[in-house]
């Protein structure tokens, strides 16, 4: 199995890794049984994601997709962040091995999960905006 240099770079030097103590939204997706858990923290001001952090349990691709996803959404509006697809995550990493594509789905879901938490905290029903945040489909055995 071959990882691109970009994947290895993001695994070796993950961007925005850690926690945000005063996060406005925290999302967590995946489970230990499948071998991937992603937790994402966002800080939001005037509809813009001003800061983001992540923690991930998982393989190289799981760490790399989380890392690049944080780079792709920081400074963006929530609406733009919600538009980030797993495909865009894969492209930003110059590709992923087929068996690892589910990691990019998890990264997309992690963002949605964090935004869902943000809206819930604001007293706004997140479902009409974010939709249902499911687990990575690939994890359903």
């Amino acid at each position: 199995m071959l990882y691109t240099d970009k994947v290895l770079d993001h695994f070796t030097n993950p961007r925005n890794v850690g926690e945000l103590e005063d996060a406005d939204g925290i999302g967590e997706v995946g489970n230990a049984k499948c071998g991937d858990i992603m937790k994402m923290y966002i800080k939001v001001k005037d509809g813009i994601i001003t800061d983001v952090r992540f923690k991930t349990f998982g393989c190289g691709a799981a760490v790399a997709t989380s890392s690049i996803a944080t780079e792709l959404i920081v400074g963006k509006s929530i609406d733009d962040a919600l538009k980030l697809s797993n495909k865009a995550v894969v492209e930003a990493l110059d590709g992923l091995p087929p068996s690892k594509v589910h990691c990019s789905v998890l990264a997309e879901q992690a963002i949605k999960s964090a935004v869902t938490d943000y809206y819930t905290r604001q007293g706004i029903d997140p479902i009409p905006i974010v939709g249902e945040v499911g687990d990575c489909d690939a994890c359903h055995h």
Binding site: L8, T12, G35, F57, G58, C59, A62, S99
Partner: peptide, 30 residues
């Protein structure tokens, strides 16, 4: 608390070749 393939990639960065029974190295989800 950590996953096998990540350990292997880090070991590789230090020049150590090893293997794992994690899903990520077995080519399946199990």
């Amino acid at each position: 608390g950590i996953e096998g393939e990540s350990i292997l990639l880090m070991l590789d960065m230090y020049g150590i070749c090893a293997s794992s029974g994690s899903a990520c190295t077995s080519g399946s989800l199990d």
